[in-house]
Structures are given as structure tokens and as C-alpha cells.
Design a protein around this nucleic acid. Structure first.
Lengths: 111, 111
DNA sequence: CTGCTCGCTCACCTCGGGGTAACCACCCAC
DNA sequence: GTGGGTGGTTACCCCGAGGTGAGCGAGCAG
């Protein structure tokens, strides 16, 4: 979304956070990785609709932002596992109120 | 951002919430309106960089989503005031943890 | 008559995020 | 040799959010 940041209490914090979760699939990835570490192809299957290119790109962005950890196992066939860092888990926790708000006020029946 | 929504606990809630705050200037608007109701031109000045077209569009989206209230005063020169609804105030509150997270972990010095 | 403010709307263009498909190296099974 | 699965990279295209500038209708100041 590329939210514009202006000085101000925690609005700048929001802008910074938004820039980190900016990307069509990042929240889905965050949420999927919350459960347990996943492999690349696993993520591709669990997040239907994402292309390999964009999946790789957004995972890399999350990695450079310190949200996910990427671990390469030198096996054959090659294996790569992505997992949430502590920072990523904090981020997911910080997203919960927003999810609750959305579920409460926007979804047809959250009974 | 147009976050993709898939079934799941409150991830769909997050996706719904994200679709509401999706727009380059919406969080800034939310934050500016949090303080007090504002007029159109006032918002344009307080949120530097936004164009009139996009300001009008995003305000209208926020209005149809029930986040802001638009009140027209039949004066001359014309006056229009935008304010947060209760729903909008709830949304801002739900965004606070995210802002705190961003301020804490992403901003250079939040001391 | 001209110009200014206010709150928009409209037509036009740009730019980049994301989609599509092909390709890579490696190894195994058939 | 052919196909499949691993985890990617690369080139190319498309579309839509957002930026730009103009206009508009009313009224008041000069």
C-alpha cells in the first residue's frame, strides 16, 4: 500500500508497520507461519493463488525485515524452511486486535 | 494492498480490516480525524501530499465503510465536515497495538 | 468584469506490484 | 532418456491506484 508517513505520535509507527506488511500475501504468510515452520512448496500450496515469483519476493522481504527466518538444509532434494522470528510473532500478536475488529464489525456472521 | 482473504480464524478478519484501511492516505486520515472533526481543505493541508481527487475518493470510501461521517453545512462558501464514527474510533483503537509494535521495533529511536 | 475561496469532479498519464511462463541445477524412479 | 519433485530466477505484460491539471457553481470583494 505504501502508506505515507508523517511525524506524529504512533502514526509513524503504524506507517512503518504497514510498510512491513505491505504486499498482497504477507498477512496470509504471517498467519500460515504462525502455526509452524513451512517449506517453500508447502507455502505455495497453503496460500492458493500466489505465484512462485511473488512468494519468493515477499518471503525475502519479510526476511530482510526480520519477520521470518530462512533456513536451508543441505540435503537432496534441497529443503528450505521458513519460520517466524520472535519479532514476527510479536507482529502477529499486534495484528490480532485488528483482526478481531474486522471479524466483529465487517464479517457477515461472526457468531 | 488488496490483501487476499482465505478462510481461517481471524485472518479473514484481518483481511477485511485491511481492505478498509487499504489506500495510501487512509491511516493518516484516520489519525488526523481522531483529534477532531475536520473540513475538506483542512485535511488537504494537514495531510501534505494528498491530491484533492484521491482525498475525496478515500474519504468517500471511508464513509461508505461507516468509518467517517460526512456532514454538509448549507452555507456560503460551502462547508463540509468529516468526523470519525464510533466504528472509526474502534478501528483506530484496534490499530494502536500495530502502531506500538512499529514504533518499538522499526523506528530508529523511540526513546 | 475579474478574481478569489470552497468542495469537489473529470480526463489523462505514469509507474510499479503482481501474474504468466519459461528456464535452471540437482537427484531419483522408471 | 524421460519425467517428476526440489527451490528458485528471469523476461515480459497488464492493470489499477494514485498524481496532475483543468473546470465548475455559488457568492462576495475589489
Amino acid at each position: 500500500m505504501a502508506v505515507t508517513r508523517r511525524p506524529g505520535a504512533h502514526e509513524c509507527g503504524i506507517a512503518a508497520a504497514m510498510s512491513v506488511i505491505d504486499g498482497k500475501w504477507k498477512v496470509s504468510l504471517l498467519w500460515t507461519l504462525e502455526q509452524r515452520p513451512r517449506r517453500f512448496g508447502e507455502l505455495r500450496r497453503l496460500v492458493p493463488g500466489v505465484s512462485e515469483k511473488v512468494l519468493a519476493a515477499q518471503l525475502r522481504e519479510l526476511e530482510t525485515d526480520g519477520i521470518v527466518h530462512r533456513e536451508v538444509f543441505d540435503e537432496v532434494p534441497p529443503r528450505v524452511e521458513y519460520s517466524l522470528t520472535a519479532l514476527g510473532q510479536d507482529l502477529n500478536a499486534a495484528l490480532e486486535p485488528l483482526g478481531d475488529w474486522g471479524a466483529k464489525h465487517l464479517l457477515p456472521d461472526s457468531a
